[in-house]
C-alpha cells in the first residue's frame, strides 16, 4: 500500500451569502501517492468547492486538512501561497496563461517565484516539461498566439514545473475537443504511471472519469 499524501478529517463548509447553507458535510478523504483520482457529481454537489479546499486556496472551513503529513489548517495565507507554489500544480478548464509572456516564460514563472534554482536551470527544466507535453517547438511563441490545445498543454507544463506533490485539475478537458481531451488525459495517465504523480481532477466528463484510478462521486455535500 502506497503512503497517504492527502488526508481530510470532518471537513464542513458553509456559504453565508445570501443564506447560510452547508456545502460540504463532514468530508473524510484519503488520497494516496500516485493516485489518479476524479471528483464527479452534479452542479452544486460541492465537488469544485472541495477541490479548492484541498488545494489550500480556500481555507474557510471546519475540519482538518493534511498534505504530506503537514497540517495546513490555521496556517497564514503567505505560508499557504508558498506551499501551493512548491507543492501544488493547477490545471483549469481555461488555460489562464499570462498573454504577454511566451509559452516558456509562462512555464518558468512559478519556478522563478520559488527561486530554488538559478534561472538557467529553471529554463532547462521548463524546456524538459514542454518536451514531455510535445510542444517544445512552441516555447518561444507568445502564449496568446497558441491554439487552445497547445495552451492547455503549456498550462499542464506550468503545473509540473516545481515537481509538485499534487496536481489539481478543475475540468481540465472541459473546454477542449475530443482530440485535445485525449491528449490531456493521456498526459495525466502518463504522469501518474511513469512519474508517480498524484492527480485530483474535478470533471463532468464521464468517459474521462471512467478511465481514472478512482472515482469519488459527490452529492449534496457528501461523498457517496
Amino acid at each position: 500500500m502506497k503512503q497517504i499524501l492527502l488526508k481530510t478529517e470532518g471537513i464542513s463548509k458553509y456559504f453565508h451569502d445570501p443564506q447560510t447553507f452547508q456545502v460540504l458535510k463532514s468530508i473524510d478523504l484519503e488520497v494516496r501517492r500516485g493516485e489518479f483520482l476524479s471528483l464527479v457529481g452534479k452542479s452544486g454537489s460541492g465537488k469544485s468547492t472541495l477541490m479548492y479546499l484541498l488545494s489550500t486556496m480556500d481555507m474557510d472551513f471546519e475540519g482538518k486538512l493534511q498534505i504530506n503529513n503537514i497540517e495546513l489548517t490555521g496556517k497564514k495565507p503567505d505560508y499557504l501561497a508558498r506551499f501551493r507554489n512548491e507543492h501544488i500544480g493547477f490545471v483549469f478548464q481555461f488555460h489562464f496563461l499570462l498573454p504577454e509572456f511566451t509559452a516558456l516564460e509562462n512555464v518558468m514563472i512559478p519556478a522563478l517565484k520559488l527561486a530554488k534554482f538559478p534561472e538557467s536551470e529553471i529554463k532547462k527544466r521548463a524546456m524538459e516539461k514542454l518536451d514531455i507535453l510535445g510542444i517544445a517547438d512552441q516555447a518561444d511563441k507568445v502564449s496568446s498566439k497558441l491554439s487552445g490545445g497547445q495552451q492547455q498543454r503549456v498550462a499542464i507544463a506550468r503545473a509540473l514545473i516545481n515537481n509538485p506533490l499534487l496536481i489539481m485539475g478543475d475540468e481540465p478537458t472541459g473546454n477542449l475537443d475530443s482530440v485535445n481531451s485525449k491528449i490531456v488525459f493521456d498526459t495525466f495517465r502518463k504522469l501518474t504511471q511513469e512519474l508517480g504523480q498524484t492527480i485530483i481532477a474535478v470533471t463532468h466528463d464521464d468517459d474521462f472519469a471512467a478511465k481514472t484510478d478512482r472515482i469519488i462521486e459527490m452529492k449534496d455535500g457528501r461523498i457517496l
Binding site: R84, F92, K113, R158
Partner: peptide, 16 residues
C-alpha cells in the same frame, strides 16, 4: 483579473 487569479493560485501571495 485572470492573470492575478492564476498568479495567486500558483503561489504568489497577496503582497507579491
Amino acid at each position: 483579473m485572470k492573470d492575478i487569479a492564476i498568479l495567486k493560485a500558483t503561489g504568489f501571495a497577496a503582497k507579491d
